[in-house]
């Protein structure tokens, strides 16, 4: 379905959702991200690609301040979402994360029922007033996660009992349930088999309707299949950022070219 990079893809200029300027990240004394500027658009899938250890996941985790949970990590520069600086003192990272959801590399359902997995976010953020509201949110999120039909009869079975691909879609549904505006995905398919991967990729394309999606991926084919914009990271630098079609067919930087043709990796 998405086997070839689609150069004629819809590339209209859209509203900018996240604006990052001069971002530097340090782990202790290691300089992990060096002066990165990037604009991420709304209702677009943006892919971060690059060799292992290039800083793409680190940068992704800056966007919802997940790096705060690591003691030795320090972030400099400015990241704005809808014009609000997320590293401002007034910003509560907890609220930020409700607005910028995240899906992880390995499916990580909580050891609770499927229903409780989805309801967890809405509950802590107070999104449902009644049980009926909550039921509705759960159903809607599971539908958006494209997993409703598979689990609707066993909502109270443990989430850990699902298959890997189902678990990951459950995690996406769980992230969607808090009504975020941005969805961050850190290699969401790396632990899945090809069929499950195809299902998740299809889902990502649908999510683009409503969200700004940022996906970190190891697989260039995947980036080409699902994203409209692509950013190539190398050794902590953002080497090149632009339309996915252009990056894959006509990269400006020689390093990008080497990477996508398989010479560095």
């Amino acid at each position: 379905m998405y086997d070839t990079p689609n150069t004629e893809r819809d590339v209209d200029q859209k509203e900018i959702k996240i604006e990052a300027r001069g971002v530097q990240v340090f782990y202790g004394t290691t300089h992990a991200i060096k002066d990165v500027d990037v604009d991420i658009e709304d209702k677009t899938v943006t892919a971060f690609i690059g060799p292992s250890g290039c800083g793409k996941s680190t940068f992704l985790r800056c966007l919802n301040r997940m790096n705060d949970t690591i003691d030795i990590c320090r972030v400099e520069g400015k990241i704005e979402i809808d014009g609000d600086d997320i590293y401002d003192k007034r910003v509560d990272p907890v609220q930020l994360r409700a607005k910028v959801g995240m899906v992880f590399q390995k499916p990580n359902p909580f050891p609770k029922s499927i229903y409780d997995n989805i309801a967890y976010g809405p509950r802590i953020h107070g999104l449902a007033k009644t049980k009926a509201d909550l039921d509705e949110i759960v159903e809607k999120s599971l539908r958006r996660g494209a997993i409703w039909d598979e689990v609707k009869d066993r909502l109270h079975a443990p989430g850990t009992g699902l298959s890997g691909g189902q678990q990951q879609r459950l995690c996406i549904a769980r992230a969607v349930a808090t009504e975020p505006e941005v969805l961050l995905m850190d290699e969401p398919c790396s632990a899945l088999d090809p069929i499950a991967t195809a299902q998740v990729e299809e889902l990502i394309d649908e999510l683009r309707e409503n969200y700004s999606v940022v996906i970190v991926t190891h697989s260039m084919q995947q980036a080409a299949r699902v994203s409209q914009k692509t950013a190539f990271f190398h050794l902590g630098n953002l080497v090149e950022f632009g339309e996915t079609g252009k990056i894959f067919t006509n990269p400006e930087d020689s390093r990008t070219e080497s990477y996508i043709t398989g010479r560095i990796g």
Partner: peptide, 21 residues
């Protein structure tokens, strides 16, 4: 840790993560 990350990623506070996850 993935369990905690999952919860933080949804915008849970530390205490919510600890108590509920």
């Amino acid at each position: 840790q993935a369990m905690r990350d999952g919860s933080y990623g949804l915008g849970a506070t530390r205490s919510e993560t600890i108590r509920q996850v």
